[in-house]
Amino acid sequence: MSWASFAEACARVRELCVEHLGEHVGTQFAALAKPGFGLRPVQPGRTAAGLGRWGGPALLNPGTPWPEHDGVPLSLFAVLDVDALGSWLGDERPPDGLLNIFFFDPDIRRGYVLEGAPLLDLDDPRCCRIIPADPARAIERAAPAPASFHAPEPFSAVPVVTLPSMQGVSYDPVLDTVDYGGETEDSLHYRSMPGWPASDRLGDPWLEFCEREQGLYKYEDVSFSPDQAFGWPILENSFPQLKKPYRHLITIGHHDLGDGGYVHFVLPLKAFRDGDYEQAVALVEGF
């Protein structure tokens, strides 16, 4: 489905939230909705999202050094062309027009030597880097060895509305901030984790809504696709980094990037608004 406006999408989301959670809680959940984009391979009838793509060379301003971690060059996972996404993001739009998304993924076939290499800690923020560029000045830079290189594949960006993740015990911590109106449950787990009842009641209907009306998290012959820009990420695990206000930049899990699984790239709220990408962290699911 193609939404005419974010307001129209939010109205439908509010109906769903109130239906499953009641007026008091459902209205609060609907207010958490954020605009995002489902990222899909470009096929007939779809338009590429500007310069946006998975893999390929980086698009960097002249003189920008290639990012490294412990002397090993990072791999380019995606380029995100924010300027090409239009007005759908509203106030959720970051200040830079072109963003290069890097992650630590060296390739043995390109000369990476495992023996003597530092132990890989994917929680180390140095494993990822977000580097902005000016679309009018950016030039292509090929990934130096032993960084992995993936053939470029343009993607299209479909406007969607998102809610915080509600996947069982891995729900987004922001759900614990909702006023549940003194509602209690017999389960001790429900009392200690207030977001659980909402997850139970709305989690499955919300995923069904996303697949049915937005094509989010599922397309073509792919049973689950997390590829998404902005909005709320869908979480399979719990991450302590999300206990403070944050913004989601992009989730990448497309094709053969990395060793499987997928990666969320997020920033603290203020850093996102200021374009301070040095504070970006990567949250890894199933690598």
Score class of each variant (00 low, 15 high):
residue 147 A to T: 08
residue 46 R to E: 09
residue 255 H to E: 11
residue 6 F to Q: 07
residue 232 W to V: 02
residue 179 D to A: 04
residue 254 H to W: 12
residue 174 V to T: 06
residue 173 P to V: 11
residue 21 L to D: 00
residue 261 G to V: 11
residue 32 L to H: 02
residue 22 G to N: 11
residue 274 D to P: 01
residue 6 F to S: 01
residue 139 I to E: 07
residue 241 Q to R: 15
residue 285 E to Q: 14
residue 186 D to K: 05
residue 156 S to N: 07
residue 98 L to T: 07
residue 215 G to A: 01
residue 7 A to T: 12
residue 220 E to K: 12
residue 90 G to K: 14
residue 224 F to A: 01
residue 238 S to F: 15
residue 232 W to C: 06
residue 274 D to E: 15
residue 183 E to N: 05
residue 33 A to D: 00
residue 52 G to Q: 11
residue 144 P to F: 05
residue 185 E to A: 08
residue 78 A to H: 11
residue 69 H to Q: 06
residue 19 E to P: 00
residue 61 N to H: 01
residue 179 D to P: 00
residue 150 H to W: 15
residue 229 A to G: 12
residue 282 A to C: 05
residue 228 Q to N: 01
residue 218 K to L: 02
residue 230 F to D: 02
residue 15 E to I: 07
residue 255 H to F: 11
residue 229 A to H: 13
residue 7 A to L: 06
residue 15 E to S: 11
residue 27 T to P: 00
residue 115 E to V: 07
residue 105 D to I: 08
residue 45 G to A: 05
residue 119 L to C: 10
residue 250 I to L: 12
residue 208 E to R: 14
residue 67 P to D: 01
residue 261 G to L: 05
residue 42 V to A: 04
residue 15 E to F: 09
residue 113 V to E: 10
residue 34 K to C: 04
residue 73 P to S: 06
residue 220 E to S: 14
residue 130 I to R: 08
residue 23 E to M: 01
residue 67 P to L: 03
residue 196 W to H: 10
residue 225 S to C: 12
residue 118 P to M: 08
residue 111 G to Q: 08
residue 239 F to G: 05
